[in-house]
Design a protein around this nucleic acid. Structure first.
Length: 319
DNA sequence: AAGGCACGCAACCGCGAACGC
DNA sequence: AGCGTTCGCGGTTGCGTGCCT
């Protein structure tokens, strides 16, 4: 059975918004505020789907939108946040005041993706496209690739220690820290940037350019969940040796929406691939210490404490 | 000058989660 | 608990614009 349509398509406008429609929407929201998008079009006298109104407002009409070109700092932040969060555009947008998820998504697909590709970086994994297979993180580190894979594909994560550092700042030349070094020549080639190498002379053989944004460190430390019985909400903070902070707020009343189908560690154990897939009761399990029967979810482990609310990545604070 | 092509952005679509009854 | 509705998100599409030949 299909879903009921969100609106009466036969009587709604589609396509580009007119000035009059914009004005109507702005006037209505100024008077009544946001919300109830379903009924808004009718109430505002718009022949538009509620979703369309919401999108128009959020992505274009909202008064707090910044608009205009992205700055280099925003570029760098997007790249780093993407390496951390993947295609969670709304989360990334939450870190960029005045920017919308749609805007960032478009910007990523049109500019940053190409920029990374031209540097030989896979924008999906933030690794070199011809990365040496041996160049994987050590047993105590996991790249953003691992994180994304675990969030999305249930693939294994090689975590062997109870306190595991996920390094998004892999010091190898092919990682995201390297990405922010090479902007200078980008302007020379950004005009009419094209996937065709014949049009574009890729100049990313810069010998040494000062690294930017050194104050943003995205290393995560995974530790067994701390259970705070006193407070419903608490936070933990990982202080990187260089002084950067990554804070994790965990709110019991605000559980993460996204499912945590991923690996985690508990009590200094090594989990096997089977457990990382959430089939810990299978005969394939070869964990060093049994995790079975613990508080772990029956549908898989709780990588980063997402299920238990140990880490709410929406509220990761970076300084 | 004109046609073709690529790019960039706004908008649409479908799905899953959240919410209310 | 189950079901229907609404909301929000991410992927995709369509169209306007500018550049190239």
């Amino acid at each position: 059975m299909g879903r009921s349509p969100c609106c009466e398509k036969a009587h709604t406008n589609k396509g580009a918004w007119t000035k009059e429609e914009d004005d109507r929407l702005i006037a209505y929201i100024r008077t009544h505020g946001e919300g109830c998008w379903r009924s808004l079009p009718k109430a505002a006298g718009l022949l538009r789907c509620g979703k369309s109104c919401r999108l128009r407002w959020i992505n274009y009409l909202r008064p707090d939108l910044k608009r205009g070109n992205f700055t280099e700092e925003e570029d760098e932040l997007i790249i780093k946040l993407h390496s951390l969060l993947g295609n969670k555009w709304s989360l990334i947008a939450g870190r960029l005041p005045g920017r919308t998820d749609n805007e960032i998504k478009n910007y990523w697909n049109t500019h940053i993706r190409r920029k990374l590709l031209n540097r030989g970086i896979d924008p999906a994994t933030h690794r070199s496209v011809n990365d040496n297979p041996n160049n994987h993180p050590t047993t105590t580190t996991a790249t953003a690739t691992n994180i994304n894979n675990n969030n999305n594909n249930n693939s294994s994560l090689d975590i062997t220690t109870a306190a595991t550092t996920i390094s998004f700042a892999n010091p190898t030349p092919t990682t995201i820290h390297h990405l922010v070094k090479e902007e200078v020549l980008e302007d020379e080639t950004k005009h009419k940037s094209d996937s065709g190498a014949d049009r574009r002379k890729i100049k990313n053989t810069v010998p040494e350019i000062q690294e930017r944004c050194p104050d943003l460190n995205l290393e995560l430390r995974i530790s067994p969940p701390h259970h705070h019985h006193q407070n419903n909400s608490s936070s933990s903070s990982y202080i990187h040796p260089q002084g950067q902070h990554v804070n994790y707020h965990h709110h019991q009343h605000q559980p993460l929406k996204t499912g945590g189908r991923s690996s985690s560690v508990s009590g200094g154990t090594t989990i096997c691939f089977a457990c990382s897939l959430g089939i810990e009761n299978s005969k394939e399990c070869s964990c060093t210490i049994s995790l079975h029967g613990t508080s772990s979810s029956s549908t898989g482990y709780d990588f980063l404490g997402l299920k238990t609310g140990v880490l709410d990545y929406r509220s990761i604070e970076m300084k």
